[in-house]
């Protein structure tokens, strides 16, 4: 399954928006954290997990989804949220802890929930899988269209919740697709030292569903495989497991010294940065430089507007901390 030109450009635009967003967040995050890095300080405090380099998986999958479909995501959720269409301004405001944020500042960057586009995420590893099954089940029971996609990291594929959810999905033939972003690291632990199999797609066999591995951090290849899987789910033919190779160009979190990385790994990954690669490919396929420049400029201003909106928004009253526990 190959993307139309429109779909290709949509993927490119969302990759660029995502990258620019992360760059802007990184810059703002570092404000107030010098000379001594202290996570608690600055306009964006707390942990920050950036998705630089992992954009292809999010866009290759979400290109097949509409607002009605469900995405459950991870502790590293920005690229997934952007590709799913979460409002960028409200997402930025949430990360800045402002009243205009998705939760008014209660949740923060690991807890982005946007019911308008059926997006949610969790900071607990593996916890995207179960809720995706439940949402898929709900659509089945209600005879409503829609599929659910659970994103997770390759480290999360060793969590009990992942295996239980796959068995549930396989047993009940749920319209759900599990998408593993294999960036080969779980914080400092390499995949090979934590996983009994080399590739997680083989695990699908144990749960009665097809499994696919997509090498190369290639948006078009992911688009292809995800398209088949999502179409299958829409037809009621059951779940699929996809593992896609991807690259984490940033540290695990901001402030990570990354001493565990073998020498040269980062340089090698940057040389394979998927965004310039995608641009080259689009040019080779006949897109014009002007066309792509325009996309990049649009991405820049979208991100700039979102960050400005976040900065200029007010904080909620501190006592709002005590509200919204129940609805």
């Amino acid at each position: 399954m190959q993307p139309t030109k429109e779909q290709s450009l949509w993927m490119y635009e969302n990759m660029v928006v995502s990258r620019r967003f992360e760059e802007a967040i990184e810059k703002a995050y570092l404000e107030g954290k010098t000379p001594a890095f202290n996570m608690a300080n600055g306009p964006i405090p707390g942990e920050m997990h950036l998705s630089n380099g992992q954009e292809p998986v999010a866009v290759g999958v979400c290109a097949h989804l509409n607002a009605d479909d469900i995405v459950t995501a991870t502790h590293r959720p920005h690229h997934q949220a952007i590709a799913k269409g979460v409002d960028l301004k409200r997402m930025a405001a949430e990360i800045f802890g402002k009243s205009t944020g998705l939760s008014g500042g209660r949740g923060g960057h690991m807890h982005l929930i946007d019911p308008a586009v059926n997006f949610s995420c969790s900071g607990i590893i593996g916890e995207s899988c179960g809720p995706a099954c439940g949402a898929a089940l709900s659509r089945t029971i209600q005879s409503k269209p829609g599929v659910a996609v659970a994103f997770l990291g390759e480290g999360a594929a060793n969590q009990g919740a992942f295996h239980e959810a796959l068995n549930l999905a396989g047993t009940w033939k749920l319209p759900v697709v599990f998408v593993i972003e294999d960036n080969s690291w779980g914080i400092s632990v390499p995949k090979a030292e934590a996983t009994a199999v080399i590739r997680n797609d083989v695990r699908a066999a144990g749960y009665g569903m097809p499994g696919h591995y997509v090498p190369g951090n290639d948006p078009h290849a992911i688009f292809d495989v995800a398209g088949e899987a999502i179409a299958r789910a829409r037809k009621g033919e059951g779940p699929t497991l996809i593992e896609a190779e991807t690259y984490r160009l940033a540290g695990h979190f901001m402030g990570d010294a990354e001493q565990y990385r073998p020498k040269g790994e980062k340089d090698a990954l940057f040389a394979k940065d998927p965004i310039p690669k995608m641009r080259e490919r689009l040019l080779a396929e006949g897109c014009t430089a002007t066309e792509l420049d325009e996309i990049e400029q649009r991405a820049d201003s979208l991100v700039a507007d979102a960050i400005t909106f976040a900065r200029e928004s007010d904080y909620a009253p501190e006592s709002d901390a005590l509200t919204a526990v129940f609805v």
Binding site: G46, R106, A316, E318, S319, A321, L322, V325
Partner: peptide
């Protein structure tokens, strides 16, 4: 700590 989930925003968390 009041009986609410721990809020992210710094001023809210410090309030609690």
């Amino acid at each position: 700590f009041p009986d609410v989930p721990i809020p992210y925003a710094k001023h809210m968390e410090q309030f609690c």
